[in-house]
Amino acid sequence: MNTIVCVKQVLDPEIPPAKFKIDAEAKQVIPPAGVPPVISVYDERAVEAALRLKDKHKGKITALSMGSEKAADVIKHAIALGADDGFVLQDAAFENLDSFGTAYVLAKAIQKIGEYDLVLCGRQAADWGAGEVGSILAEILGIPVITLASEIQAQDKTLRVKRIVSDGFEVLEAPMPCLITVGSEIGLPRLPAGPRLMMARKKVIPIWRAQDIGAEPTKLDKQNAHTEVIGLSVPTRKTECEMITGATPADAAAHLAAKLSKLI
């Protein structure tokens, strides 16, 4: 079974809010010093989903990342976890693409790779989080799509996918090739194994430019962007927090209980 996993390198979403700064004019986030970018959380789950299928059915996993040259780090991360191969899609023309542009670039790269049974993506990126690249990518590739999977099983040429919904779950079946987006419900990702980590670190990750994948310049033209960010702000909520104290923790708790009992 051949799987392609799309991964994105993002600003660590777990940074303390105090370190989070934006350039409102440029509508960009200022990367905080000393905080290395990470693989987007859901994309890491997508890699995990691919590895679980490989554990069972063998086959090959190829990781793809569109981003800066540094995106090689997330490909290496995927390889350290068990992916076989990977490519970075980097070109000045790929910078700040919207969801349609991103999906187009990924589709061109996937078509260059050629053979695949399954394409996996995180449900949304942990930065801009548009949550639509997977669906557009499937539409361009002309393959079925299942979003927000929590479990994936493969049998012959059919995929059986569990997806959590608000009041329970549903099970879907789709023929391969298929695209599936993955949420954190799939479970914790494994840790990279030591020897693979060394191997991945040394690996040279090929970079594909626009011309390598045959991307048409008009499709990458920012003038044709479907959406545009016109404002970026940090929401403020000033709350006066009344600190409740007491001689003992139990005492403080009793004071709090008295306050709360008036509210409910």
Binding site: P13, A126, D127, T227, E228, V229, G231, S233
Partner: peptide, 15 residues
């Protein structure tokens, strides 16, 4: 966006 750290306002100019 960014896990709720920021809010972005978007427009679709022609799409």
């Amino acid at each position: 966006v960014f896990g709720g750290n920021a809010h972005a306002t978007m427009l679709a100019k022609s799409a």
